[in-house]
Design a binder for these strands. Structure first.
Lengths: 343, 343
DNA sequence: ATGAAAGCGCTAACAG
DNA sequence: CTGTTAGCGCTTTCAT
């Protein structure tokens, strides 16, 4: 049964008693083929165990059916989820995904790009990091191949990109807290240079305004990316501003640190198993890079950056771009989702 | 600058004033080419911005340079790390990775397999799930393409596979505890039907024997995959066996649950910030599917299943198999690493 | 509705 | 050392 030679469309044609072009037409479902012939061909295909050589098809026909992805490092949950969503969406369309990693510093990006080009991909998705002065975009244009950025950073206007909606995420969190009756809300974490943080703060501020609540800039704290610093800041903040009832945290580290800080200060949040010395409770809300199951036990309301949705969206956009050429590039934004804490 | 036609090896040949075969030889570095000609060709390549069409090369030459990976779901950290290691190792060899997801139940596995075959991959790595009665292995053999399994399950002897060394991981943990002076060690978690658990228990038991310590089967507890159940079990266990000084947990859920249980029972572990009612401490050690940064704050010594190493190893084996045909398949085992808790 | 033939871009014999 | 030539497996006009 194990014939050494590879089975080709010629073998199928012979077995079905038709010509190769007929087989090709049946396979791609293009030409008008009588159902009888179609049947015969399909039988032969099944009988011989023929698998179409997609490379040869691409060589002649054009489309390879593969999309390339460049991520910095797949072991980062955000990129893993993004890749998962991308691959899922592509496979639903019968496409395939070439995965490459550009290194945690993005140092191999050009190499990845070139490899993907050489493999004849129909499009490239770059996740993480910006375009170095439009270099990649220029190359992609030269080779007439769709290129799209998908990550948390911002891009020049002419760049096709998919990114999370930071303002909307902040609005989500803020409205949630307000709807729970909180009016004095603080902000913890992030660096002021961060654009992501700026956008989130914008959404936060806008929502406060919308509900007629004041924005206290002295309640907005930067903090280092350590639980220790977050805990320290929370304790200090609450000591000086005891009327605060809720805190929005920039990330899961800040949130966890804040929780420990609250525990230490005797100001716990939610109905956790710990006892509190005070009746008052501080509500915690936070942004998460990704849904984090391990943090289930901390009473925090999360707004998750929808990495998987971003991947799906990137897939949709790059495929659409492949069909409909000469469209104007732009930035597409993907909304966050609220994940309530399971009491 | 944006010429519409694709640049081929012919253009390069013409520009360099040589023949196509010379260019091909320079590109693949095979034939003995005078350095002068080589230089001219490389110049032309650079000047024209030529990118080699790998599909055409594969069509003629055989090797596509791509390896296919089938994982159940990339958003699972174990598979993500595995994929990361695999892709990393492949790219170092100038290979590429096709990524496919077979769905959380593995329901699309056959489809993934077929797609990869059609793309002409040089080998396939299947992560997660076993071979349905050798079906996939048979197909791979028929198409003469290396197939290797990489996951935590066990496989029939004739199957080429890479998996974590569960016994070694258990020995690592057990020896660690013993070296810290623990002699009365309990086991928490997992289901008795699990082979992984059986192997780990084997390593645990063997190490106890080796150090002349008794194995108490009544200190080995099954438990549900919830923190709640783990906590409950720990409390009950310690109530009835107050001399126990250490617990090995089957996974991070059991470990986290155990920690909460210890806190509740007033038997905390490590130098955490909580107060204890008793002087005695219970040491916690556990197996982790993957290094979990979020759990840094729980005082547990982890043995991590080296997902990334498994990916790397799978890459090495499948590439080697590609070169050296007709080797006997077998199971390769990858050691775990100890991750001590950062006091 | 189907067949014949001309390549896609590249590599691998052979010649020179 | 380098050029000529014949395809790899498939798609796609153009005939029939």
């Amino acid at each position: 049964m194990a014939s050494s030679r590879r089975i080709t469309i010629n073998d199928v044609a012979e077995a079905a008693g038709v010509s190769v072009s007929t087989v090709s037409l049946v396979l791609s479902g293009k030409g008008r083929i009588s159902s009888a012939t179609g049947q015969r061909v399909n039988d032969a295909v099944a009988r011989l165990g023929f698998v179409r050589n997609h490379q040869a098809a691409a060589l002649r026909g054009g489309q390879s059916g593969a999309i390339g992805l460049i991520v910095r490092d797949l072991s980062h949950p955000f990129y893993a989820d993004l890749a998962a969503g991308l691959s899922e969406a592509l496979e639903q369309q019968g496409r395939m995904l070439f995965l490459t990693q550009s290194g945690s510093g993005g140092q191999y990006r050009q190499r990845c790009f070139d490899s993907l080009l050489a493999q004849g991909v129909d499009g490239i998705v770059i996740a993480g990091g910006g375009d170095d002065g439009g270099l990649l975009r220029a190359q992609a244009e030269q080779h007439q191949i769709p290129l799209i950025f998908a990550s948390r950073a911002a891009y020049p206007d002419e760049t096709e990109a998919v990114r999370p909606d930071n303002m909307q995420a902040a609005r989500l969190l803020t409205e949630h807290l307000i709807s729970r009756g909180h009016q004095r809300i603080a902000w913890l974490g992030g660096r002021s240079a961060s654009l992501t943080r700026a956008e989130r703060l914008g959404g936060f501020c806008a929502t406060l305004m919308q509900y007629g609540l004041p924005f206290h800039s002295e309640w907005v704290l930067e903090c280092e990316a350590t639980q220790r610093d977050a805990a320290r800041q929370v304790v200090a903040l609450l000591r000086h501003n005891p009327t605060i009832t809720a805190i929005i945290c920039h990330d899961s580290i800040a949130a966890t640190g804040a929780w420990f800080g609250l525990l230490r200060a005797g100001r716990y949040s939610g109905e956790g198993g710990m006892e509190s010395y005070f009746d008052s409770q501080i509500a915690l809300a936070a942004f998460a890079g990704v849904p984090e199951a391990a943090l289930d036990d901390i009473p925090v309301t999360w707004a998750t950056a929808p990495a998987r949705d971003i991947g799906r969206s990137a897939a949709a956009h790059i495929l659409q771009w492949g069909n409909d050429r000469a469209k104007t590039p732009g930035c597409h934004t993907v909304p966050a989702r609220l994940v309530l804490h399971q009491g």
